[in-house]
């Protein structure tokens, strides 16, 4: 929030805009409610986690995901697109490379697979610094990478969104897809956590 005006004044102005637009027949309140219900029901990091778990247990799926993520996620019933069709690209962490995603211009993010983006993702601090000094930004998230690991930073745009495929943790050979998916965090899917 800016310090100039309280939330109350702004909330009232938003209400006034909505009321005037409804009176003029431009939008209607029930439609807005339906949009919100749908938005809040669809996207979740649990979706991205399921994609990752499948990639860990099914080498063929992993190959398809890395080759054409838009097509691959439909195998699990997901759709990458938002309001406009966008290219989804999955980038996999390895022993040599750690991937991290940002949208330096604003907040582009694969909402269908990750849910609404966290507020830090939209902050100027993250957007400005992770491209210049990713290691210190990752350290602020508690992720310290050895110098031998190369960091690749992917800048999302209106056309292309990214999903990080973290490395499968050691000692998880006995786990099924559901249990594996439960290990994957939202930050892991953005690249600000190891998993």
């Amino acid at each position: 929030m800016s310090a100039d005006h309280g939330d109350g004044a702004l909330a009232a102005r938003v209400r006034r805009a909505e009321t005037l637009l409804e009176e003029r027949g431009v939008v209607d309140g029930a439609e807005l409610d339906a949009i919100l219900d749908r938005y809040l029901a669809t996207g979740s990091p649990a979706n991205g986690a399921r994609v990752v778990a499948r990639a860990w247990t099914d080498a063929g799926f992993r190959d398809r995901l890395l080759a054409d993520a838009n097509a691959a996620v439909t195998e699990l019933g997901f759709r990458a697109g938002g309001l406009q069709p966008t290219l989804l690209r999955a980038v996999a962490n390895t022993a040599e490379v750690h991937n991290v995603v940002v949208c330096t211009l604003c907040s582009c993010y694969p909402i269908a697979l990750l849910g609404p983006s966290p507020s830090w993702y939209k902050s100027e601090a993250y957007r400005s610094r992770v491209v210049r000094d990713p290691r210190s930004v990752l350290a602020e998230f508690g992720l310290t990478l050895p110098d031998t690991v190369r960091v690749e930073v992917w800048d999302a745009s209106a056309e292309t969104r990214y999903l990080v495929v973290p490395r499968r943790p050691d000692g998880t050979d006995h786990l099924d897809d559901d249990k594996l998916a439960a290990l994957v965090t939202r930050n892991g899917l953005i690249g600000t956590a190891a998993v």
Binding site: V102, W120, S123, S128, R132, D155
Partner: peptide, 9 residues
């Protein structure tokens, strides 16, 4: 992107 001065995330 790359701008300085926005502080900690």
């Amino acid at each position: 992107g790359g701008m300085e001065g926005f502080g900690a995330v």
